[in-house]
């Protein structure tokens, strides 16, 4: 929990300090991948590589090690910093959304990490366009779902 004096005026639910600290950690992780191994820390591409669904990218063991680090880091954060567990949608929704995310990130060559963090910071036009597109699609989707929920 963020102390009250660190909250964002007008947005009582927001947690800007935790967000910024987490964002810096994410940037640090991506920095080690780039300067250490010369690769983009793009999770969708690395996941496809780990599964053997992509011929490009890092070695499979490197891909698997990066993916294993994601829950390991989350577990450490949960244990040490008390990160929350979250509220998840039901199984059918998770599965269908996963399909869209898997197909879409392969077709669009990246997700929030590859395009949103690594590409945008490199001022890649493709990544800026992709990021604006998936945020706009996400905003529209949530708006439509809220409307349908309210009508039902």
């Amino acid at each position: 929990m963020t102390p009250a004096h660190l909250a964002l005026p007008g947005f009582p639910g927001a947690d800007p300090v935790a967000g910024l600290i987490g964002g810096l950690l994410i940037g640090l992780g991506a920095a080690i991948m780039l300067l250490g191994l010369g690769r983009i820390a793009g999770v969708s591409g690395i996941a496809a590589r780990a599964l053997g669904l992509s011929t490009q990218g890092m070695g499979r063991l490197l891909a698997l090690a990066f993916l294993a680090g994601l829950p390991l880091g989350a577990w450490l954060a949960f244990d040490l910093a008390g990160a929350g567990q979250g509220v998840f949608p039901e199984s059918g929704v998770l599965l269908g959304a996963g399909l869209l995310v898997g197909f879409g990130t392969r077709l669009g060559s990246g997700c929030t990490s590859g395009h949103g963090v690594c590409g945008m910071s490199r001022l890649s036009a493709r990544s800026i366009v992709a990021t604006l597109t998936f945020i706009a699609a996400g905003v529209a989707t949530v708006a439509v779902m809220n409307m349908m929920g309210n009508a039902a």
Binding site: G98, V101, T105, S109, V129
Partner: peptide, 29 residues
């Protein structure tokens, strides 16, 4: 491909509130 792929991803992201990175990280939580 870039635009359609990003749009499909964005729809899935909006529906579930998860993208690939948090999907893997959530294995621990």
């Amino acid at each position: 491909r870039l635009i359609l792929g990003a749009a499909l991803f964005g729809i899935g992201w909006g529906v579930a509130g998860l993208c690939p990175g948090p999907g893997f990280a959530a294995l621990a939580l």
